[in-house]
């Protein structure tokens, strides 16, 4: 859009509003720090980071699958839940440690997600998009209620047994637990691995090529079905790891535990720009911070946290539907 003289006042007003908003946020933060002390504030930021990293592990699966098949895999949050349960059984029944438990969770989730794709989504590859979307919701319900049956995971809340003792360090009043350290370390490790695969390996480049232009990708000799399977597998592995980390951080699991973090990770993916990997990470970290800062500083924050999180979705849809890093979608035939 060209800047014309008539539009200039409008632009100025918009900028003034942005400036006021920014000033308000800065003023608010300074006030909060004054009132509660910087230690409290840093603590909240750290906790938000912990949550945000877990969201990132879930959001990546939403965004990658969307990038390849243009489908919101609503069952993704239930794959996350299954990851938490798989590790729970590994830890309590077999006495496994953290590393084997998280690896098992990832493998179980990969198998589950690949099966979901084969059985539920693949037959609908050429159907209208809404059909696949409704199917995804159906798969999600199925997983939640089926696993809640007695012979499966059961319908009760279960206390998750952490595979290690919690250690808390006091650094100048800010409390850091080994849980935070492990969450951040595992997530960054997986992220680096993902970035390496996507950007440096032949199969990763083929994934990006496929998300850009499926027909051209086929003309290169790329097997689209294989790429789709791989995408569901990678998304599931990350979600599985996320499920374990989430259960370690908030040690209570049940078969509906995936819904809230799943929704928030989905909002994070949209906030960052759906289909965009960097966007999913940025969006997730923002969502984690928004949530924890709300709980810490807003009156009745613990009740408003979910409201604020979903308010973000509405604001994104109004202000920039394509998200922070997303670009305008050109619908292709």
């Amino acid at each position: 859009m060209k800047l014309t003289w008539r539009r200039l006042p409008l632009k100025l007003i918009a900028w003034v509003i942005y400036a006021l908003l920014a000033a308000g946020i800065v003023y608010g933060i300074i006030g909060l720090v004054r009132l509660n002390g910087s230690v409290f504030f840093i603590q909240a930021i750290l906790d938000g980071l912990k949550l945000g990293f877990v969201y990132a592990l879930i959001a990546l699966g939403y965004t990658m699958v969307y990038g390849i098949v243009r489908l919101i895999n609503f069952a993704h949050c239930d794959v996350f839940m299954v990851g938490a349960f798989a590790s729970y059984y590994a830890i309590t029944r077999f006495g496994w440690g953290f590393v084997p438990a998280i690896l098992l969770a990832m493998v179980v989730c990969i198998l589950l997600n690949i099966t979901i794709e084969r059985v539920a989504y693949k037959p609908l590859r050429n159907a209208p998009r809404i059909t696949a979307l409704i199917t995804a919701i159906g798969v999600s319900f199925f997983l939640e209620y089926f696993t809640a049956l007695k012979f499966a995971f059961g319908a009760d809340y279960i206390t998750y047994k952490r595979p290690f003792e919690v250690v808390v360090w006091d650094i100048g009043g800010v409390l850091i637990s080994n849980i935070t350290v492990i969450i951040v370390a595992v997530t960054i490790l997986l992220l680096l691995l993902l970035l390496y695969v996507i950007n440096k390996t032949k199969i990763g480049k083929a994934m990006r090529a496929t998300s850009l232009d499926k027909t051209a990708a086929r003309l290169m000799g790329i097997n689209i079905d294989g790429i789709i399977t791989l995408t569901f597998a990678i998304g599931a592995a990350l979600a599985g790891a996320g499920g374990v980390l989430y259960a370690i951080a908030f040690p209570q699991i049940w078969t509906f535990m995936g819904i809230m973090p799943g929704m928030k990770a989905f909002v994070a993916a949209v906030l960052g720009g759906i289909g965009n990997i960097g966007g999913a990470v940025i969006g997730s970290l923002l969502m984690g911070e928004i949530e924890v800062l709300t709980v810490s500083f807003v009156p009745f924050g613990s009740r408003l946290r979910d409201l604020f999180a979903f308010l973000v979705l509405i604001i994104v849809f109004i202000v920039k539907p394509t998200g922070i890093l997303g670009e305008p979608q050109v619908e292709k035939v």
């Binding site: 480049k205 990006r208 090529a209 850009l212 232009d213 003309l219 290169m220 000799g221 790329i222």
Partner: peptide, 19 residues
Amino acid sequence: RQIFSKLTVRENLEMGAFT
């Protein structure tokens, strides 16, 4: 043409050699 717009020229050529 159907070039992969977000892939570099080198990566586009590499995709040509995918098989």
